[in-house]
């Protein structure tokens, strides 16, 4: 038997990837090339797509999905999944709106309430998964339902209008010509990048997703790392809920419904492996940009939303397929 292991090892040695193979180039930059192609095609059909105004509009739309995808990347890297992000967007958005109705409070109060709700719900996901050992798919599926229920309870399914001016600036305002949601996304991106690539916590995220047992043997506190990843996802979903509520200028109980599809799609298109341990943050960025460009571009081309669903679904499957083809080669 040990001979067999040696043989496997030998195969590995000879299969060592050279640093600049075309295959590597494709697996690293394939999605980026995809993004450029999509942009090119849409621009040829609708030249106004590349207008500055539309670009910022697109980025503003994408910021919600972007925030969620950043959090989802942490979770997926540990080998988990968070299906509850859309519902957490709804719950945090409603509570933020309820607080933002009190115009005497500064804008930061509803923001903190929204992010806090997301953080708490994410923490509950984390406890259920890391401590009580419920599979992530089931635990967050439960939260998807629970958080949506909370949202309806809080609002009695009625819109929550009349939000304070300061709060409305978060989703609708701009600094110069850059929309504030885009700035929020950029800041979140930098922080996530630092967390993932410059801290020991980031290293542990990759380690836990790559090999949980080996990480445990190496002294990594696996459960805490998993827990933290759901906290991050929850908190970012809370922030996304705040931005969304502010942008549509009222709290809506159904806000965020079904968002998890686009978010998971963005992460998968970005090349992060659902098995955990492998993936890049910049891949996720390209992933949510592709989704954003598609949504925006197909709208501009007046493609029916029914067709948009079919096109998006196909892209997700094709992206995952290319990833697994890359693996098996």
């Amino acid at each position: 038997m040990s001979d067999a292991m040696v043989i496997e090892d030998l195969r590995d040695v000879t299969e060592k990837k050279s640093l600049f193979s075309p295959k590597d180039f494709f697996s690293n930059f394939g999605t980026l090339i995809g993004l450029v192609l999509v942009v090119l095609v849409i621009t040829i059909i609708k030249p106004q797509f590349l207008g500055l105004e539309n670009i910022f509009n697109l980025l503003r739309q994408t910021s919600i999905n972007g925030l969620l995808a950043l959090g989802m990347t942490f979770v997926v890297l540990t080998g988990g999944i968070d299906l509850s992000v859309g519902s957490i967007v709804g719950a945090s958005g409603i509570y933020a709106a309820l607080v933002a109705q009190h115009s005497e409070l500064p804008w930061i109060v509803p923001v903190l309430v929204g992010v806090g709700i997301g953080f708490v719900l994410g923490s509950i996901n984390g406890i259920v998964i890391a401590r009580l050992r419920v599979p992530p798919f089931i635990a967050t599926l439960g939260m998807l339902s629970i958080a949506r229920g909370i949202t309806y309870l809080a609002s009695d399914a009625r819109p929550v209008p009349g939000l304070s001016q300061g709060f409305l600036m978060i989703g609708g305002g701009s600094v110069g010509f850059i929309p504030i949601p885009v700035i929020i996304l950029a800041v979140a991106l930098v922080l996530c990048w630092l967390l993932l690539y410059r801290t020991k916590f980031g290293r542990y995220i990759y380690a836990v997703g790559g090999n949980e047992t080996a990480s445990k043997v190496s002294g990594v506190k696996v459960r805490s790392v998993v827990w933290a990843s759901y906290m991050i996802s929850g908190a970012l979903a809370g922030l996304a809920g705040v931005v969304l509520t502010s942008r549509v200028s009222s709290g809506l109980a159904q806000a965020g419904t079904g968002y998890e599809t686009d978010v998971i799609a963005a992460v998968v298109i970005g090349g992060t492996s659902l098995a955990g341990g492998r993936g890049r943050l910049w891949g996720t960025i390209v992933g949510f940009l592709i989704i954003g460009v598609m949504n925006n571009g197909l709208d501009m081309m007046a493609v029916s939303s029914y067709w948009q669903l079919i096109i998006k679904g196909t892209i997700i499957v094709v992206a995952a397929m290319m990833d697994s083809l890359n693996d098996s080669k």
Partner: peptide, 22 residues
């Protein structure tokens, strides 16, 4: 199963238990 983190680099495997040192 219990030793290597396969997708990580050689270096990151080496320092994993002692990240606090760095």
């Amino acid at each position: 199963k219990e030793g290597i983190i396969p997708d990580m680099g050689v270096g990151q495997n080496v320092t994993l238990p002692f990240m606090s040192q760095f």
